[in-house]
Structures are given as structure tokens and as C-alpha cells.
Write a protein that binds this DNA or RNA. Sequence first.
DNA 1: GTGAAAGCGCTAACAA
DNA 2: TTGTTAGCGCTTTCAC
Lengths: 341, 341
Amino acid sequence: MRSKQPTIWDIAIKLNVSISTVSRALRNAPDINPETKKAVLDLAHQLDYQPNTIATSLRKNKTDIIGVMVPEFVHAFFPSIILGIQEVANAAGYKVMVMQSGESLEIEKHNLQAMVSSRVDGLILAITRETNDYEHIISAQRKGLPIVFFNRVVDELQGSKVMVDDYKGAYIAVQHLIQTGCRRIAHLAGPENMTIGRNRLNGYLDALKAHQVPIEDELIMHCDFVDGRARACTQRLLTMENRPDALFAVNDPTAIEALICIRENGLSIPDDIALAGFSNAPHGAFVTPSLTSVVQPIHEIGGLAAQLLLRQIKAPQQFIPETHVLDTTLVIRQSTRAKPE
Amino acid sequence: MRSKQPTIWDIAIKLNVSISTVSRALRNAPDINPETKKAVLDLAHQLDYQPNTIATSLRKNKTDIIGVMVPEFVHAFFPSIILGIQEVANAAGYKVMVMQSGESLEIEKHNLQAMVSSRVDGLILAITRETNDYEHIISAQRKGLPIVFFNRVVDELQGSKVMVDDYKGAYIAVQHLIQTGCRRIAHLAGPENMTIGRNRLNGYLDALKAHQVPIEDELIMHCDFVDGRARACTQRLLTMENRPDALFAVNDPTAIEALICIRENGLSIPDDIALAGFSNAPHGAFVTPSLTSVVQPIHEIGGLAAQLLLRQIKAPQQFIPETHVLDTTLVIRQSTRAKPE
DNA sequence: GTGAAAGCGCTAACAA
DNA sequence: TTGTTAGCGCTTTCAC
């Protein structure tokens, strides 16, 4: 903002005191005459004085801002997490600066630079699906930027991580499909370089193995969180000569794409094809048929990530990376068949 | 970020030049020896130097950040708009700082203070449903903060505004309901202190009048964007002795609440009750039955708001507030009846 | 083409 | 209890 706003200097002049006195009054330091203080605060109020946090940040070498970067926030998943982050951060006196990478590595790099340049005190990050080179992230960490990773987590990076039990979630979802009579279960999978994609795939595979359902490679389709790809993959699955009788999708947006495709093909869910997702969103309850999905504690993820980050910011020297794995549960709705008695 | 990062000083020392030379090289000023410049840039790269934008902002009295505050971003509407804002802002070299007020006036005030203190260069704002006192906003404007309002717009505030043709949208939606045979059309309305609520209500009323459909006050329910209220209102409408045969909802989240309530009551849409919304979101296409809704150019809203703001930031003295009203159209889906031939 | 120096608004020794 | 002063990292005159 370009215009001239009142500074402590203006207050000092009018009150015939020094700027340090004003500064003390404003930050209610202990060693100040109550009357002086009152005069300062009154005048500050009257002038509608707002401290220039730019100056404070420069001086104190901290901004009290934590950055958050997510791939997108059009779906409800990341916004819900950000909500959790904001609650914890604001309560601790921090502001939150949100950016989205749009699933683009280039934008991620650019935004990260901006965050570093803005000297955010810490960052909570879910990387893009494209991110396979981590130099920009490691470089920021080398500069001393504390980073907590969540959701999209990767072994190559060090730091605190918040994730959910993807393996178990996938396992119970697929097990449920098997127990309700499905035998050819396809998987609309996520990126294999990410833990999230690998673990969900492994849960899927192990559930099949444990129940002696044969694994068929052509039933595993990598959609990788790319918009539209799930639809194409589903279409391909539906036109196979021996089409699958169930789909397990790596997340809910993927599942909803599949759902639409199945409907368009005039097939019925769950009778022709059962469908289960992995809950990124509350919207699964509203589609028809409503979506059976693995539920994760969305709000908690954000809050926990913020807590870990704040701890690291406040005591960087005694920081030890922590990985938290939150529990997942299955919510059974209409898109999967009823269990036989 | 607390740790010590390289500064122009470090570069200057190593190269045995002055900091002004380094500064010039870094901003590629014209009057500098190409060799000096190259040396500086090389070293900067090697040290992984990132300029401290805090210092630059303080010095230049501008941050190149524009703030965005919205009531919430769990529904897709505001995130989509933010996307449009970011595109335009980033292309112009601005960063975007997003905050949400959570529909709370208190948080709105607090966040606005934070934005002012952070000296954002401008603000794009959709006020909360609670905001009926505008002093905090006017005060920020008095300080010279350019603000563009959108979606939730109010007569009492001056400044550029981006809105859609709410009146027309409501009118054509209700007209469609009438033309498809509905006669008792209820309205799940928005807050009356906002243009958005008033205009949609007026469109509803005028469409009824124009088609000689009697207006019944008890069919107008004020849900005011409060979560859960649409559900309660719908329940009340459904249990009226002479229940309505159509609902026009002020926005899609409201419509979806109504849809769920109607389904729970075992009534069929659109046969028992037709339903139309006002599109805040693309999700209307996925619910069953899919939602007839007034569509607004979401992406354009954000882009336009950003353009207006940037123009005002860059030439504040010759700024004249502009109000833009974007067009709306009706998308007919399954939640309303077919037109008679 | 380069350097010296002032200053953006604030905090925090240190002195008085 | 208050004032003086240095300085956070950078840009920008003004000299040279």
C-alpha cells in the first residue's frame, strides 16, 4: 500500500516523547509510565495507527507468517486441511499465507522462491504430482526453512510428515469389495513415486492376495491425479471383453469421474460394477449412488501439521523430524454391494 | 525464517565491490559493467541468494502482494474465483495472500487489520454474511488501501465491484419453473442486506408477477447462507398443508441441502418438487438428480476483479470506481421438469 | 560505471 | 522511566 500511514514517529512528535517510548507503549513493555502509555495508546487509536509489520519483520528477522502450498483447492480436501492449519496457527499468533501450485512443478518452484523471499517462518507443503526433483525443496531447507510435508509425501525428503494409513485404508476398502462378492477388482491408481500412491496400491494388492483373488496387471490403471484420466481409464476398463466387477479409486475425485463414466455407459452401480473411493472430500455423500469411501481425519491433519511446524519454528535446534500416520476407516454407502448375511 | 541467509552485503564483500553495485546488478539496472554484472549474478547463483523482499518492501513502500479475503473456501465457488485472481495477479508480478473469514465479522476485522499491517498493495474482498457494520473496511480504504468487492456487494461501500446479473439469473430460473408447470414456488433466500440476496429475491418476485403467479410470503424462507438452515427451512416447507411444488434456492449449497432433505422425505425430484439453484459450484452436475442452476462466469469474476484492482493500484489518483455486472445463464438439468411441447 | 550515504519503520541494547 | 543510537537488507540519490 503506497500511501503514508502514521508511524511511531508521528505519535512521538505529537506527544513530545521519543520513538522508543512509543514503541514500548505499543508493545506494552513493563518499564513504562502508565500515563505515558495511556497517552500513546489513545493517540494511536485516534490516528488509527497500524504497526508496519514489514518493518518489524525486518528488524526481528521473523514474519510470524507460515506458508501453505497445496496442489489445488478446488476440491474440498485441501481447503478443509487449510482450515485446520489456520485454526492452530492463528491461535498461536501466526498468519497463514496460502498458495497453490496447480499441480505444476514450475509453479511450485516459483512459489517456493516467493515464500523464501518473503521469509515465511515455516512451510506446510503438499507437493505436486509432477514433483520428482527435490532440489528446490532441499535448498529451502538448507536455508533454514522448516517444512512439514503432508498427504503427498516422499521418501527422498527429510522433515516432519503427516500422513494417513493409506495401506490399511486401501486394504479394508478392497477387502470389503471382495467380501461383497466382487472378483475382478480394478484399481485406478495414483502416482507411484509418492508414498500415497504406492501404499494404496500395496493395500490393494495385499488385500487381493490375502483373499486369494488373482492379481491382473491390466486392471491397474495409473490415473495419477490427472483430471480426466480416470474417465478415460474407466472407459477402457468397461470395454474390456471381461470387464471388472469393481473399481477401487485412489481418491474421491477419481472415483467420481469413474462414477460418471459408468453411468454414461448405462451400467448400474453397484450391481454391474461396485465402486469405492478414498475420501478426499465430503461430497461423496451427495453423489448418486453415494460413495463408499475410506475416510481420513482431514481436519486433524491440518492441525497436527501446524503443531509440528510451530514446534520446529520455536525450537529449531532441538528439532527431530516426526512422521505421524493417522488412522483411516471405511464408510460404507450405496456404491458397493451389501454384505451377504 | 530465522536463519541467516546471504545478503547483498555478502556478495559485495566477496567481490570487492559496493552493495550498490550488487544491487544494480541484481535488478539489472542499465548503468553497470556487463562483467561486473556477470560476476555478481554468478556468485548470487552460487550462494543461492534470494532477495529479502521484506527489506525491499520496506524500502519501496510496496509489497507486490494482493490480499484476498473470502468467507470460506470449502465449497468450490470461492476457490475457483481465487484461481482466476491468481492467474492475473501472478502474470503481473504480484503474489496473492489468501485469508478466510469463516463468515465471522470478528475474524474479518482481524484479518483485515493483518492485511493492512502487512501492507498488502490491495485487497479483493467478499464480505461475510454477518458484516453489517463497515467501519473497518472504510477505515482501511481511508488509509489508501484499494479494495475491489465481489459477490457479496453492498451499497454502503464505495469502490470497484464485480457482480453477476443476479436479478436476471433468478428471473429466468423462476420463469423456467413456471413454464414447466410449477405454481407454488418457494424461495430459499439469501441475506437481504446484500445486493446478491435482494436481487435474487427481486428476480424471483418479478418472475412470479410477470406470469401472474400469486406471491405468498410464507414461501419465502431466509436461509442467509447459514449451514443447515436450508435443510430446516425445506423441512418446514415440506410439512406445510399445501406444500410447494418447486424450490428456487439462492445458491447451490443451499439447493443441495434442500435436495437431501427432499430425498429424505421420500419425495421425488422433479415430479413432486422441482428444484433450481444458483450456481456457485460445478458439483451440481454430479448430484442426483443433477441440478438445474443459474451459471455464472466464475473464472472471469476473479480475473476481472484482479484487473480492476491492479489498475487502481497502479494509478490510484485517476481511479474511478467501476461496477461490472457479468451475465448469467440457465443450465437445465434433471431437477426441473421438462418443458411442455 | 561505481561508491558513499541516507533512510524505509521498527526494536533493542545501552546510557542517562 | 525515558532517550539515544545502531541496524535489520535493501534502493536510490548524489558524487566522483
